[in-house]
Design a protein around this nucleic acid. Structure first.
Lengths: 207, 207
DNA sequence: GCATTTGCCTAAACACTTTAGGTAGCTGCA
DNA sequence: TGCAGCTACCTAAAGTGTTTAGGCAAATGC
């Protein structure tokens, strides 16, 4: 009766990524995808192993896309310039592609993660730090700090954590990048001035 | 036949919270909870409105618990001491209660969020900043920075983002708190030294 | 033009969610 | 103590998503 729909893993993953941006990553389902292609659900299982497999592939695609943008943005930049460019790629991608961004945060099993674009991200973060005078282990600490700040910020912002209160979030973003730059420049050669006390566990503000 | 199980919303939410720590927040389901109480699924619907309602209540519980720990930890502390205590409450809670922590990150609708312990978190973050010399809007920026760093760090750490590479994550955590303290102390009275360029979107490192 | 491959199908089992309406166990009051 | 009424838990059923097994027909290649 009907000719063939022309499904491929590639097309499914791409459609899944778009769907996730439209309706949220959580709502990306094999069924929804089948509806979009006007095809029976079971048909998709020749192209993706499982629902989980589909989601993982979307995550990998998103990581690649971000890494590509990163590479472009970093080309020819250094120091604070590079830091800001880096930060903005991250934030803009999350705004343009909230579903994909969420997908990229998915926890991958070690082998998959190692084969993903994840390491490229880390590598580029290190590249930025070349503009600052850091030696190990400070450099690694700094890589982690940058990852934490950017991800944390975006996560809180998209979750509506920073309400609609003044000052606006763009201002804060610029401020943070500025402060991070300062933090990375002024370097007290690594010597935890004061062994931080370990009193009790720790919390998380909504603002 | 069987007497009554003694279900209450309270008990369900509490059991749900425990379950989420054991099997992950995503796996917390009305069905799973019904099994635990050895009761038919439909029976739970007199106590929680929906699966979403259950999850929201777990989130609210977790926010309360964290806020309580925070309050205890901050009592009698100031400055860096308070900052470290605050950070540790946050991190330790996430380690002890990964499911609850994830739950607490759930996006709540504005009214629910306003009635939650979320504002207490923000308020306590501001309390910490009293130990530093910040005026608005810097103080708000700083509140957001702290929230971002702590949440981002924990999120990446629990997702296995910081692999098992050296240096270990505890070292980084101490380092970050130390650097944040320095950043908050050394205050160039707010004047974005350099208008950050807005080149391209922004990414996210796995490390 | 035919054989093979394979893309999409039907069928079916299983899990979770949610609503409607019934029954039996508690609670309170005489 | 006994019964009225409440309500906690039940059965039943419909809807959605996942996943596997096996079938048929459309594309592919000779």
């Amino acid at each position: 009766m009907s000719p063939r729909a022309g499904l491929t893993t590639e097309r499914l993953v791409r459609a899944g990524a778009e769907l996730s941006d439209e309706v949220g990553f959580e709502q990306v389902t094999v069924s929804a995808l089948a509806r979009q292609f006007d095809v029976k659900v079971a048909s998709l299982y020749s192209h993706v192993k499982s629902s989980q497999d589909l989601r993982t592939r979307i995550a990998l695609l998103s990581l690649e896309e971000m890494a590509d943008r990163l590479a472009t943005a970093l080309a020819g930049r250094a120091g604070k310039d590079a830091l800001a460019a880096f930060a903005n790629v991250y934030r803009d991608y999350a705004r343009e592609h909230p579903g994909r961004y969420t997908a990229a945060r998915l926890t991958l099993d070690p082998e998959t993660a190692a084969a993903s674009a994840g390491p490229r991200h880390a590598q580029m973060t290190r590249a930025i730090l070349r503009g600052y005078d850091l030696t190990e282990p400070d450099q690694t600490h700094a890589v982690r700090l940058l990852g934490s700040v950017f991800h944390g910020y975006i996560s809180l912002e998209t979750a509506g954590g920073f309400s609609h209160s003044a000052p606006d979030t763009r201002e804060t973003w610029v401020w943070i990048v500025d402060r991070l730059d300062a933090l990375l420049r002024t370097w007290p050669p690594s010597a935890p001035s004061d062994p931080a006390p370990a009193p009790e566990p720790t919390p998380r503000p909504t603002e």
